[in-house]
Amino acid sequence: MDTVKLLDFSALILLFSTGLLVVSRRLELAIGLLAFQSLVLAFISVLVAATTGIEHIYLASILTVLVKVVGATAVLIYVLRKVKMRRETGLMSRGLSLALVVGLILVSYNTIHPIKLANTISSPNSLPVAMSMVLIGLFIMVSRKKALMAVVGLITIENGLFLIALSTTYGMPLLVEFGIFFDVAVGVMLMGFFAFHINTVFETINTDELNRLKG
């Protein structure tokens, strides 16, 4: 299998795992899927680095593994254990969620496909998949109630943006890339802390309990 096909295949795996994320009701499964998603992303960036020979992409993939696969998962699992929360009920049924997500994927394929970019790695799927990930991440954030799922959605968005950067410009400049990973790491820790804190004060991590401030 040549590299382009492998890239394309990985992108589809990425899309599939992100789709699964939407229908997963068990939080542990969602966190596992997120880790898997980040791992596939790291694999894609290694592939891109190997094909193009740009060294700093290797660094980005190492950071992806460290921050998103290991770090974020550890924080999320830790908070999950602390708050003793297993299952999640979303705002809508799985069937409806899935239908909406398919719609989002179609939208991204339709909008991205006509755009021709000079620098794109020649995998036709990676850019639409990346855009879908951003949209699905947003969808997860609005359609789920548990605070932890907001973190999962946010990391999905970040992953989508990372893939967009990877497939259009071979990643951002090194210093910027580094800064983004730093922000993600600190952000996940902070959100984990606050999710935990919300659980102690509100005795739940359902974000629909956060409804006191109005007007």
Partner: peptide
Amino acid sequence: YGRKESLEATWKYII
């Protein structure tokens, strides 16, 4: 302040 309202505000702010 760690009150309910401030936690809600913080969560909304971060997200």
